[in-house]
Every structure is written in structure tokens, then in C-alpha cells.
Amino acid sequence: MKIIVWNIPESCSEQEVRDFLGRELGHYAKEIEVFEQGTPNAYANVDVDADEPYVADIIAQQFNGKLLGGVPLQVSAVPFGSNETPPTPPRRE
């Protein structure tokens, strides 16, 4: 199961994003990939380590709006059973 996190501040490095997500998600964060860091379109894909398919949805709901660098993050779960790469979040101009 995967979640996608976007609206990451441009000022955050890849390591800062990884550390924050790892700390906040704890044992649920299996793998964290950060893309386009340092840009207004930075986002992260997180593999969620859980046995039940609804866990990613609950994590996304609870995590949505958490602040990173004073900016509220946006989070959504990738639909259960989707073997595809998570979609790229909306781009900011």
C-alpha cells in the first residue's frame, strides 16, 4: 500500500522530508521516495507496511494537514490493489 504526500516546502531537503515522514509514520513507513525536492512541486511516495488495506486510507486521513516547515501537507492513499506507480500530484505554477 502506498500514500503520496505533496505540498512539501521548497526549503526542505530530501533528508529533512525523509526524517520527518519516518518519524511521523514510525513503523508504518517501509520505504520513502522523495521527488522534485527544492521545487514547488516536491512530493513523496511512501510504502506503508500494514496487513489491512484500509490502513493507508486511515494514515492519509490522519496525516493530511500535518505541518512541515510551517506548511500543511496534503496526503492521499493510492487505491488498494493498484500495482501502478502512484500518480504525480497536481503541479503548482
Rank of each mutant, 00 (worst) to 15 (best):
residue 1 M to Y: 12
residue 3 I to K: 02
residue 4 I to A: 13
residue 4 I to T: 15
residue 4 I to Y: 13
residue 5 V to N: 00
residue 5 V to C: 00
residue 6 W to S: 15
residue 7 N to L: 13
residue 7 N to K: 15
residue 7 N to M: 13
residue 9 P to D: 01
residue 13 S to G: 15
residue 13 S to N: 12
residue 14 E to T: 14
residue 16 E to I: 06
residue 17 V to P: 00
residue 17 V to Q: 01
residue 20 F to E: 02
residue 24 E to C: 07
residue 25 L to Q: 04
residue 26 G to L: 09
residue 26 G to Q: 08
residue 26 G to I: 07
residue 28 Y to Q: 01
residue 28 Y to V: 00
residue 28 Y to K: 05
residue 31 E to C: 05
residue 31 E to S: 08
residue 32 I to A: 04
residue 32 I to Q: 02
residue 33 E to T: 11
residue 33 E to M: 10
residue 36 E to S: 14
residue 37 Q to H: 14
residue 37 Q to N: 14
residue 37 Q to W: 13
residue 39 T to I: 12
residue 39 T to A: 11
residue 42 A to F: 06
residue 45 N to L: 01
residue 46 V to Q: 02
residue 46 V to F: 03
residue 49 D to L: 08
residue 49 D to V: 03
residue 50 A to C: 09
residue 54 Y to I: 08
residue 55 V to Q: 04
residue 55 V to E: 12
residue 56 A to Y: 01
residue 57 D to G: 10
residue 58 I to E: 14
residue 62 Q to L: 15
residue 62 Q to V: 13
residue 62 Q to C: 15
residue 63 F to D: 01
residue 63 F to P: 05
residue 64 N to M: 08
residue 64 N to I: 06
residue 65 G to H: 13
residue 67 L to W: 05
residue 68 L to R: 06
residue 68 L to H: 04
residue 69 G to L: 04
residue 72 P to T: 07
residue 74 Q to P: 00
residue 76 S to I: 05
residue 77 A to D: 06
residue 78 V to E: 02
residue 79 P to R: 10
residue 80 F to G: 01
residue 82 S to Y: 10
residue 85 T to L: 09
residue 85 T to E: 08
residue 87 P to R: 12
residue 88 T to R: 14
residue 90 P to F: 03
residue 91 R to V: 07
residue 91 R to I: 07
residue 93 E to M: 04
residue 93 E to F: 06
residue 93 E to K: 10
